[in-house]
Design a binder for these strands. Structure first.
Lengths: 332, 332
DNA sequence: CTCGCGTGTGAATACGTATGCATTCCATGA
DNA sequence: TCATGGAATGCATACGTATTCACACGCGAG
């Protein structure tokens, strides 16, 4: 079927190893031979078999990326730059989507079909990292991590971001504040809530559990959480959402409920997805560099694959910035 | 490093081929041996090497998926079901994103590192299909195709969908109608425009070039196209957009320009992405089953890989349905 | 003139699995 | 008792590349 290096060797009148060396610019092969081989390869339209190379070098130049739900608007903005960075580093991307990362068939990760893994959906109680460790499979966390100090992770200063929002709300005079945070078993959820709570407390603003909702970082979480919050005796004048996708769910729910934003309700997100700037939303949010976050993760993983990495773990933390748009206002 | 079938063989006291057979439930291996091997494999935590298997069987159980821009909200809704269907068929997904499919490094597709390819971003002038044909690499078109009869493709009845919209607009009394269509080198763009034009003509409604824009299926296309259309001497009372993403760009532009939808302007999309139903949009659009579209493509590709396919090409066409929501109204 | 060395190339082999073919063993029937 | 046949397993090898090692050759130095 396919053209192999043996065919090229025959045509060029050299041995197979010489073909292998010539095409990879091994300095030990003479200029004349290199040209001869190159022409033969060209003539036969030769493309080296990836499987043969993999078996011989025990390196696949492939990286797995695990996400939960690709249709969540957050993930594409992670995956796209991740793909580009990996690609420019000479790696290809295998996409693995699973509901929970427990469900990721271990076999698929451990059959040596990739050189490393990016975990974009880690929960703090996940067993996956331990399994990867046991097998010596390099991996890095992206956005979320387990919170342990020896992780390799590219993350955001979630706590700082949460603080930014709390200070802003307090300054705007909001006293009845609500939070729709991410799941308690994600560091992104926990840290944003933590920063938010701490800075609220410093400003003398309370956050009773009755005004707190926790759930997946999904549209539906925000959309379904708002009615109950508004239905309380003392409804909140402001809601901090775990991320932009949740906030967009809230904005739609507010529209459905006839609640005016920001006149009746201040809504704040996190991430600053491109979508947050759309006219229909003009969402006030917390920005961080999602593109850089992903690129860092890619580079970190590649360095870990190459073992050029601090064995005690490396955590790259990106700063956050408050982005005022049109969904926040002074408390009435 | 890794545990191989030889290690398992040694522990189980059998030969390596027996291990290979036992673990794949070859009926020729006795029940007792099978159990013995299974226990040994378990004990050693053995996972078969994918590279070895690939080299031996010359099948990778991997499929490439080519898209342009993953951050375009359309693609995730294609990729997610595609991934799931491929996964349940025993294939893994390699994601390849490139600006133009000309730029897809041919080498990456032809090095036998995947068994087939899904082309989700074909243009009618792409050379890629011919290259894949030449190499005997199985592929199918998803959503877009080249329009040739011997394609393997899973597509939508675009022309029918375009007709639906035209009839609806005509029935609502719209006479000054505009179109923001997809690129002229995509079948999705051309066919939707074609159906729209034909049915408009039947209703006696004209569509002058001055009210036609063509561009990429992106938010920005719709967003930047609207002002010029509205600026004309006789501005349109309705706009048919090439897809929902473009329509959402138009809706945002309308909001920015202070144009009321649907009172001043009717806006219609195509695809019915989940986002189209959000309260902020309530976009009237044309629905087709995007999930089924993707699944069909996956199954078709797998059949083509297995050579269980009509050599003359197969084209699976999904029907469309008009979905009235809140962005259309009678012409003033 | 010989020794040693560097350069360029080929032969042999490793990588891990799957498979065609040969072999062994045992039971069955004549 | 021996041929026959089937069941179970092992042997040898293929897959395509990269790498280790050995070899041939030419050249300069002694």
């Amino acid at each position: 079927m396919g053209i192999t290096s043996h065919d090229v060797a025959k045509l060029a009148g050299v041995s197979q190893p010489t073909v292998s060396r010539a095409l990879r610019d091994d300095p030990r092969v003479s200029r004349a031979t290199r040209e001869k081989v190159r022409r033969a390869a060209e003539a036969l339209n030769y493309v080296p078999s990836e499987a043969g190379r993999t078996l011989s070098t025990s390196a696949t130049r492939r990286v797995g990326v695990i996400v939960t739900d690709l249709t969540n608007p957050f993930y594409p903005h992670v995956i796209a730059p991740l793909h580009d960075e990996l690609s420019s580093l000479g790696y290809r991307m295998m996409l693995i989507t699973e509901r929970s990362d427990e469900a990721v068939a271990e076999e698929k990760l451990l059959d040596q079909s990739m050189d490393g893994v990016v975990l974009a959906t880690a929960t703090t109680d996940s067993r996956l990292p331990a399994q990867l460790d046991r097998r010596g499979m390099p991996y890095v966390f992206l956005n979320r991590d387990t919170g342990r100090s020896d992780d390799f992770a590219s993350v955001v200063d979630n706590e700082g971001g949460g603080r930014l929002v709390a200070r802003e709300l307090a300054a705007l005079g909001h006293r009845r504040v609500a939070g729709i945070f991410g799941s308690a078993n994600t560091t992104t959820g926990r840290e944003r809530e933590m920063g938010f709570r701490l800075a609220l407390a410093e400003a003398g603003v309370g956050l009773p559990e009755s005004r707190v909702v926790r759930g997946a970082f999904e549209y539906e979480t925000g959309y379904s959480a708002l009615p109950a919050l508004l239905d309380a005796d003392e409804p909140p004048t402001a809601v901090f959402c775990g991320n932009d996708v949740v906030a967009i769910g809230v904005l739609n729910a507010a529209l459905a409920a006839g609640v005016r934003v920001p006149e009746d309700l201040t809504v704040i997100g996190f991430d600053d997805l491109p979508m947050a700037a759309w006219e229909v939303f003009r969402l006030t949010t917390v920005r961080h560099d999602l593109r850089e976050l992903s690129r860092q993760a890619a580079r970190l993983l590649v360095r870990r694959i190459a073992k050029e990495v601090d064995p005690a773990g490396e955590r790259l933390v990106l700063p956050t910035e408050f982005v005022p748009r049109a969904t926040h206002a002074r408390a009435r």
